[in-house]
Write a protein that binds this DNA or RNA. Structure first.
Length: 427
DNA sequence: TCTGGGGTCCTAGGACCC
DNA sequence: TCTGGGGTCCTAGGACCC
């Protein structure tokens, strides 16, 4: 369901992953903290204190050793079970402030504010902010404007200026020209590195200049999406609220390995593991995959090592969500592209070309009975893993030792999603 | 020693057809 | 040797997002 919108609020959690960690470990408050990517590789979330130390997004953590020693920088492995659960709590809380809500990402939501009179919007946003902090423990920022693109800008300004206390409403009378002329074009939603380079070359460096740019020129250089951005900067809403979450059109599962992998058998275990994870998500949305892509690659950061990467698309004979079947196809594909004599660093699979499980095309070879048994088995496996935690039941093809598994040496417990890891309060 | 993972949308161009 | 025009479908690649 889509809807034309009036004023809209963008609510964005501040330094979300770090804030989640702080809820359960107050010792991290007011300290420089970063959360690392899978494999404990590079920085994907930073506390304000860490940003103050000059640590950029994506910095490899091995370059921060000195800061850990001299400034007490604390680095944590990412804990997606925790962040996913905290996200759900934040969204629950927000939906009580406006039932017309679009969950845009794990840490962001757009809320329809058209029911709130102009003079009350700022106060309402402050109230919302206090409530999320009290109930969930996560600090958020709120930007209110007449379009999503402008709300994004308001939100960034609210975060940036401490005096605003996390809220900025630009949906009413404001000096929009002054505001936009001070906002760099590269920070506009939908303008990435490439486009901002092109725009800069043509003398467009701030949001006011982009707002005034020639429509057909923008259309040519930045496609229809760029044109929508320009219109939104003018206050014309082109991006409606998406109130219903949509099914995914593709599901990827891939990881860098904790250490290089040479043997085909080990690669097969890894790929079998990834494809079973993807299959769980596939079944959860009631889809069948018609295409499976498998890929592998050596470490591109070691240019002196022999390099090789490849991928293979497989059009499956029958669309399926059956884990053993998908594992068979993935291993077959992997075998086709595997070359001996390389140290592999990464592999993965992408499922796509989905159809609905409810109107399956019948298998011309009459294997319906077998498929039905498979469906029931998958249902049981998913239910057990949901109840007792991921990995309770696994396929033998995924291996037992899993030496290739990613490193996560600084991970916090799954405080909210695993009974064994609930926080303990000491009297 | 150590450098992420998971998505979406749009367009150009090729293959193919009449 | 010369060599049309219009349409559809598909895919690879590029741009963006968090």
């Amino acid at each position: 369901m889509r809807a034309i919108i009036g004023p809209v609020a963008l609510v964005d959690c501040n330094n979300f992953y770090v804030s989640c960690e702080r809820v359960f470990d107050p010792g991290l408050l007011r300290k420089p903290v970063v959360v690392l990517s899978n494999n404990d590789g590079c920085v994907v979330a930073r506390s304000n204190e860490a940003k103050g130390l000059g640590i950029g997004f994506g910095t490899p953590i091995f370059k921060c050793g000195e800061l850990v020693r001299s400034k007490g920088l604390k680095a944590l492995s990412s804990n997606y079970a925790l962040y996913g659960d905290m996200s759900r709590r934040v969204m629950d809380c927000l939906s009580r402030f406006s039932p017309r809500i679009e969950t845009y990402s794990i840490d962001e939501a757009f809320l329809d504010f058209s029911g709130i009179p102009l003079t009350e919007r700022t106060a309402y946003a402050h109230q919302l902010r206090r409530r999320v902090l009290k109930e969930v423990g996560i600090p958020v920022s709120v930007g209110v404007a007449t379009t999503k693109t402008l709300a994004k800008i308001a939100n960034k300004l609210a975060k940036r200026n401490a005096g605003l206390k996390g809220v900025l409403d630009i949906s009413g009378e404001v000096d929009m020209d002054a505001l936009l002329s001070a906002f760099p074009v590269s920070e506009i939603w939908g303008v990435g590195y490439r486009y901002s380079q092109t725009l800069n070359r043509h003398g467009i460096s701030n949001a006011l200049q982009l707002r005034g740019a020639d429509f057909s020129w923008v259309r040519k250089k930045m496609t229809i999406k760029g044109l929508r951005t320009v219109l939104e900067l003018r206050g014309i809403s082109c991006m409606p609220l998406e109130l219903m979450s949509k099914d995914k059109k593709a599901i990827t599962s891939s990881r860098s390995f904790g250490k290089p992998v040479v043997e085909l058998d080990e690669l097969k275990e890894a790929v079998a593991t990834y494809v079973s994870r993807a299959a769980v998500k596939l079944r959860a949305q009631g889809s069948l995959a018609g295409t499976l892509m498998v890929f592998l690659a050596t470490n591109r950061f070691k240019p002196d090592d022999p390099q090789y990467s490849n991928f293979l698309h497989l059009n499956l004979p029958t669309a399926t969500s059956d884990s053993p079947e998908l594992i068979r196809h993935a291993c077959f594909g992997l075998q086709r592209i595997y070359r001996e004599g390389f140290s592999y660093k990464q592999a993965g699979v992408i499922l796509s070309n989905f159809s609905s499980e409810r109107h399956t095309q019948l298998d011309i070879f009459g294997a319906e009975e077998k498929r039905e048994r498979g469906r029931k088995l998958m249902g049981v496996v998913d239910a057990v893993n949901l109840r007792f935690g991921r990995g309770t039941l696994e396929f033998a093809a995924c291996g037992l030792e899993q030496p290739w598994k990613t490193r996560q040496e600084m991970k916090s417990p799954a405080y909210t999603t695993n009974w064994d890891q609930l926080p303990v309060v000491r009297a």
